[in-house]
């Protein structure tokens, strides 16, 4: 009986036709989906920036990410190869993996001699070779070394920051860098507070007036940061100094007063509560004492 039914189905042409159609329906779209996943690597993007820190350390930062509409996603743990281009050759500096924010940072100590070049201008490269999922990408910045320094001057209670910027000539001597946009900041807890923007003159000099009413820490210390930002020629260059020009702010935490909102209650309140409670409970115990006498008299009679 069972065999008959199976035979009936197995050798029915309609059955095979349906099977074939189902096969086509289910297999074809699934395959094409898979294909798109495997064969189309995602376009990766890179930003390469150059920062010269206050101690002369140069930092190359490569940010590796993908963009989908408005959403940026960092590419993590991807090796980025940094190199510097000379007039004649290219020198590889190192390979750094990106962190969880997609950043690969290369620190170049101030003692590290980059290959000699005219006017100390360099072309830095960062390269990500990609893999099955990401398309290779590279970044490039052209940087001329800038020397930024500043002095603090106080004249007639007017405080100014005198800034000098220099660059190297083709003969490797220092010459003034003019028309450089320079920002003055004071470091704050969350961000930098701008105190002025100036352009350097022909002598590579400029000055920023320091506000007289800026609070510092408990002894008036402040951190001043002078910066060249996003310059096409110099990249980012900064110089940081601690100064004592701020108005001291008293950090002394005065003992919190006795208050309704404080841990300790106002004295009158404690006294009032104690007096009222003592009065009430005194009477209570007086009444209990009378009762004790009643009981005592009852025992005597027995």
């Amino acid at each position: 009986m069972k065999i008959q039914i199976i035979n009936k189905y197995l050798f029915n042409k309609v059955y095979y036709k349906i099977l074939f159609i189902l096969f086509v329906i289910y297999s074809v779209p699934a395959r094409s989906e898979d294909n798109s996943k495997i064969n189309k690597p995602i376009k990766s993007r890179m930003y390469l920036t150059y920062d010269k820190l206050t101690d002369g350390t140069k930092v190359l930062t490569a940010k590796l990410f993908t963009k989908d509409g408005k959403i940026f996603t960092p590419i993590v743990n991807a090796p980025v190869c940094f190199s510097v281009e000379n007039d004649t050759s290219t020198l590889e500096l190192g390979i750094i993996s990106t962190d969880k924010e997609g950043l690969a940072l290369l620190y170049l100590s101030k003692h590290y001699q980059l290959p000699g070049n005219l006017g100390r201008a360099y072309i830095f490269h960062a390269e990500y070779s990609g893999n099955d999922e990401y398309i290779p990408v590279d970044g490039q910045v052209e940087i001329k070394d800038l020397l930024l320094d500043f002095k603090l001057a106080e004249k007639d209670s007017e405080k100014t920051i005198e800034i000098t910027v220099n660059e190297y000539s083709s003969e490797d001597t220092l010459v003034p860098a003019y028309d450089v946009e320079i920002y003055g900041y004071v470091k704050r807890l969350y961000s930098l507070l701008e105190i002025g923007v100036e352009y350097s003159d022909d002598l590579g000099m400029t000055s920023i007036e320091f506000p007289g009413d800026l609070p510092g820490d408990s002894i008036g210390n402040l951190t001043v940061i002078i910066k060249v930002e996003d310059s096409d020629i110099y990249g980012n260059v900064e110089k940081i100094k601690d100064i004592n020009w701020g108005i001291p702010v008293s950090y002394k935490e005065t003992k919190t007063p006795r208050a309704l909102w404080a841990d300790e209650a106002p004295l009158w309140m404690i006294i009032a509560v104690i007096v009222i409670l003592a009065g009430a409970w005194f009477n209570f115990f007086l009444a209990i004492f009378k009762l004790y006498k009643v009981r005592k008299l009852g025992k005597i009679r027995k």
Binding site: N283, F284, L286, A287, I288, K290, L291, K293, V294, L297
Partner: peptide
């Protein structure tokens, strides 16, 4: 007397 006093106090 004592009981009345106790009652009055309470």
């Amino acid at each position: 007397k004592y009981l009345n006093q106790a009652l009055d106090i309470m």
